[in-house]
């Protein structure tokens, strides 16, 4: 019965995932796939399980039920992590005093899987420069990470996530705390990564406004997967109307 699904070879395959946190049901029987080239927005109210879902897909958390596959392999067995980029939820996890330059932050990802004999120094430099250029941060390469603004740090973390030229990039609320104008540039940048570099993008967001302009797939989560499909259909869907009718805070959510 899986033969047709196997033929289309989804990048990510989420099957019947449930997650309970004690008695609280965070995710309930979520099933969907992400195909190569998608720009998918995962939306849903606070506590709807968006971050948990991504963490399960990335193997950072274990589901109570179900299975996530990356490039056809169960996530526990997946090893080719240079094909996956990840930008975690911002601010909470970074030590502002950490003594790392922008260049070093990007190098961490580039050299994480390297054995003792590294690639040539020159090649390293080129890869790092290229990634920083893509997010328009190459001028800052010798700055300390903690000395940058929130939006600039986010760009650096994206450079870090794409330095290995991944097939798929996960972002968890990347524009939280970033001003509106910068956000626009930010989404344009993601657009070009998606369209020009062919990187599949999966982004958790509160900001439904951007969904219209940039993404081509929407997954609406509220414990269960309420909607998954193209963004055009999403705008006609009951899920979207419900969300608007509810005056839901996710329509325009600013921190």
């Amino acid at each position: 019965m899986d033969s047709s699904a196997a033929d289309s070879k989804p990048l990510i395959d989420v099957k019947n995932i449930s997650f309970n946190y004690g008695p609280v049901e965070v995710l309930k029987d979520v099933t969907f796939t992400i195909s190569s080239g998608d720009f998918l927005a995962i939306i849903g109210p606070n506590g709807s399980g968006k971050t948990t879902l991504i963490k399960i897909i990335l193997g950072l958390m274990k589901p109570s039920h179900g299975e996530a596959r990356i490039l056809g392999k169960p996530v526990e067995e997946f090893e080719d992590w240079s094909k996956v980029g990840y930008v975690p939820q911002k601010a909470t996890h970074i030590d502002p005093l950490f003594p790392a330059s922008i260049k070093e932050v990007v190098a961490m990802e580039l050299l994480a899987s390297r054995r003792f004999l590294r690639m040539k120094k020159r090649e390293e430099e080129v890869s790092i420069e290229k990634a920083l250029k893509q997010v328009n941060m190459e001028r800052f390469k010798n700055w300390r990470i903690g000395s940058l603004s929130g939006g600039q740090q986010q760009r650096v973390f994206i450079a870090r996530a794409i330095v290995n030229q991944p097939h798929i990039l996960f972002l968890d609320e990347p524009t939280t705390g970033v001003d509106t104008e910068t956000q626009e540039h930010f989404y344009d940048m993601l657009d070009s990564l998606n369209k020009e570099e062919g990187i599949t993008i999966v982004m958790i967001t509160h900001d439904i406004g951007i969904v219209n302009k940039h993404v081509n797939q929407v997954a609406c989560l509220n414990q269960k997967l309420v909607y998954h499909g193209s963004h055009e259909e999403f705008c006609q869907s009951q899920a979207f109307k419900d969300m608007l009718a509810g005056g839901h805070h996710l329509v325009s959510h600013r921190h």
Partner: peptide
Amino acid sequence: EAAKVSGI
């Protein structure tokens, strides 16, 4: 977390 996802 990012380190874990990079395969470390």
